[in-house]
């Protein structure tokens, strides 16, 4: 067991050099990398926080938009309903008028037909009456000569 003064001094010099080297070339790069990583992680966390907040905002906004759209749809539906019933009312009115018109025209036609038929009938009855009279009289009657009389008769029926 011995302590050697030259060894102590030499060892101190070596120690000093080692500390100097560590201080200059080992410590700063590694602590710098550590610091950088720390700030990078902090940035990442902040970004994530911001992202989640933005997501929350967006979902809130979308919910609002959905609600507004629903209200609008309701409104549009109501409007459409109103319009449809209006159209139906209008159509009903038009149909009524048309129907009345058709009915009126039919009436007119029927009247006309009736009048026509009556004329026809009168003519035939006149002819029949003439024929009957001819048979009864057993004599020929000049249809031409008595047309005026027959027509007068037909008009009376």
């Amino acid at each position: 067991m011995q302590a050697s003064i030259p060894s102590i001094v030499g060892q101190m010099i070596v120690f000093g050099l080692f500390v100097w080297f560590t201080m200059k070339f080992v410590w700063p790069p590694i602590t710098k990398a550590l610091e950088e990583r720390r700030s990078r992680i902090a940035d990442g966390l902040a970004a994530a926080e911001k992202g989640s907040r933005a997501l929350q905002d967006a979902s809130l906004k979308s919910e609002e938009a959905l609600k507004a759209a629903r209200v609008q749809a309701q409104e549009i539906l109501a409007n459409a309903n109103k319009q449809a019933s209006q159209i139906v009312e209008q159509a009903k009115g038009t149909a009524q008028v048309e129907a009345e018109r058709i009915v009126a025209k039919a009436h007119e036609d029927v009247q006309r037909e009736v009048a026509h038929a009556r004329d026809e009938l009168r003519k035939q009855v006149g002819e029949l009456a003439v024929a009957g009279a001819a048979k009864i009289l057993k004599r020929e009657i000049d249809a031409k000569a008595h047309a005026d009389v027959l027509n007068e008769l037909a008009a009376k029926i």
Binding site: Q2, S4, I5, P6, S7, V14, F25, V26, I30
Partner: peptide, 27 residues
Amino acid sequence: FISLTDWHLDTLLISTLLGLVFLTLFR
């Protein structure tokens, strides 16, 4: 017990080598 002249060569050599191992690895 306290030598003023002798160098402990083994201590110097081995401790310096170990120090260099440390510095190389960390560098």
